[in-house]
């Protein structure tokens, strides 16, 4: 069941033919017929999300911990199966692909993780870590594979000398460069970067952000950039999706989202973020409710300073409030 009504998208011209599309994508955990699943309600991690990402676009995904960002990222890469809904990549329905076909598709879609320390195998040299996906996805062997590996290493600002070294010999920023190189090794078109700079110091963070931006431009990469750091997201994205309890609260071009947030949750996030907006009108109270038992109507209503009775009864649909700017809130009469 998708709770979302037909969405009128004043679709930007360039998204007429998106590289990646999701329709009504939903993930419930813990309701897989397992031993204990009947007793407890499923965790509604992602609930009826529609999404189009254009080729070459950088889409940010923000929201508090537990809002479903990582689950959404894994769903669009089909690293996990959706409970319902569809994902298509370059016009092809990913869910209809057989395992073998999906494996061939993998080379186009990669992921970068938060922690460069645990995402690299400590016992593999950097060279081996890069040659592996090159052999698997591009079918290159021997010297050709090693040359390709040096090629990606140089792309991320490292050298051939680094091939024989182990991850522990690198600093945090260098390790994240290596993780990026590994994701780039199969020449993907689409990358989900899940909190790629969150574990890094600011000076290193700046280095990795610059690298990602540069690679995105040079290679025309399409990126889904997941982060809870709103200032980083503002710097790197073209458009931003705001998630709360697995639902989209607002979706808008970066400038208009930051300059003119339309949803009370987005406004609250921006006010809470240090250094973003100095006037803290509404500090959100409480914490994100359990996704196993989300509030009725608007899921944000239990923390929304503007909630009215109607919010408990109506599930807000995502609707346009400006050019390419959508929000899921029933009220238009509020001053954020």
């Amino acid at each position: 069941m998708s709770e979302q009504a037909d969405i009128e998208r004043p679709a930007a011209e360039f998204r007429a033919q998106p590289l990646l599309s999701a329709r009504g994508i939903t993930k419930h955990f813990g309701n897989d017929g397992g031993m204990f699943s009947k007793a407890s309600a499923p965790i509604r991690a992602v609930e009826g999300v529609d999404l189009d990402i254009a080729s070459g676009e950088v889409l940010g995904v923000v929201g508090e911990s537990g809002s479903g960002k990582s689950t959404l990222g894994r769903l669009v890469l089909r690293l996990i199966e959706p409970t319902s809904g569809t994902v298509s990549f370059d016009g092809k329905d990913l869910c209809s692909l057989q395992t073998g076909e999906m494996r061939r598709f993998r080379r186009h879609m990669q992921m970068i993780f938060q922690d460069p320390f645990s995402s690299l195998n400590a016992r593999m040299t950097i060279g081996d870590a890069l040659v592996e996906p090159i052999a698997l996805h591009l079918g290159l062997r021997g010297q050709a594979a090693r040359d390709a590996a040096v090629g990606v290493l140089e792309r991320v600002g490292l050298h051939a000398d680094h091939m024989k070294r182990y991850p522990r010999m690198f600093s945090g920023g260098q390790r994240q460069r290596i993780a990026i190189a590994r994701a780039l090794a199969s020449s993907p078109r689409f990358i989900v970067a899940d909190e790629p700079v969150s574990a890094l110091d600011v000076s290193v963070q700046a280095e990795v952000i610059n690298l990602l931006q540069q690679l995105q431009k040079e290679l025309g990469l399409t990126l889904m950039f997941i982060s809870h750091d709103l200032s980083v997201v503002e710097v790197i994205t073209d458009r931003v999706m705001v998630l709360y309890l697995g639902r989209v609260m607002e979706l808008a071009p970066t400038e208009s989202l930051y300059g003119n947030p339309a949803h009370p949750y987005t406004a609250a996030l921006l006010q809470a973020a240090p250094g973003m907006i100095s006037v803290k009108k509404h500090i959100l109270k409480g914490e994100i409710p359990s996704p196993a038992n989300p509030p009725s109507g608007c899921v944000f209503r239990t923390r929304c300073p503007f909630a009215i009775d109607a919010c408990a009864h109506t599930v807000p649909t995502l609707r346009p409030v400006g050019p390419d700017h959508l929000k899921a809130c029933i009220r238009d009469d509020i001053e954020l």
Binding site: E64, S65, H228, L230, A268, L269, Q271, A272, A273, P274, K280, I283, L284, K285, E287
Partner: peptide, 11 residues
């Protein structure tokens, strides 16, 4: 912590 909770703790 999340920015929202961070803002609560800072206040």
């Amino acid at each position: 912590l999340d920015v929202t909770i961070q803002a609560q703790i800072m206040a």
